[in-house]
């Protein structure tokens, strides 16, 4: 009876292949690692010893054994707990921002490296090629 109700709640038949044995355990751990334990501070369902987390892990195991896919399982928990329960954010902006920063930063680094390699144009000291004087200048600078 409860299984029937679960299927109704999931609104769809399983879309993947049923799992069992060590593969099932492995996948349970993986999917449970993507779910946030609702009571603990930031721990995943896979790691948490709290009662609700253990129940959720068991539920994940059962759903995987019946062939539900990761997406279906995550959607099911999202229905009851909200987006809060997903440890991997769905929001696209947060995934793109670091890449944007990397690209912007790389441009800055390349332009800076090029700029710093040009000979300097303002230098109020008499330029010198004498290695000794250059060195002393460096040391005398305070």
């Amino acid at each position: 009876m409860i299984l029937l109700l679960l299927t109704v709640a999931l609104n769809a038949p399983p879309q993947g292949t049923p799992l069992s044995g060590p593969a099932l355990e492995q996948r349970t751990y993986e999917v449970a690692s993507l779910l946030r334990c609702p009571v603990c501070q930031g721990m995943s369902v896979a790691d948490s010893p709290s009662t609700v987390a253990l129940d959720m892990k068991q539920q994940v195991r059962e759903l995987l054994a019946r062939g539900y896919t990761q997406e279906q399982i995550l959607a099911y928990f999202e229905q009851s707990y909200g987006q809060f329960v997903l440890l991997k954010p769905r929001n696209r902006l947060i995934w793109i921002l670091p890449i944007l920063i990397l690209v912007a930063g790389a441009i800055v680094v390349v332009t800076t490296a090029k700029k710093l390699s040009q000979p300097s144009t303002t230098d109020d000291r008499q330029p010198t090629t004498d290695a000794y004087i250059s060195r002393v200048r460096e040391l005398v600078d305070k």
Partner: peptide, 16 residues
Amino acid sequence: AVEAFKGRQMSVGRPY
């Protein structure tokens, strides 16, 4: 930030 400006609660965890 998301909660402040959109009122939605979301998580950013280890996978990210």
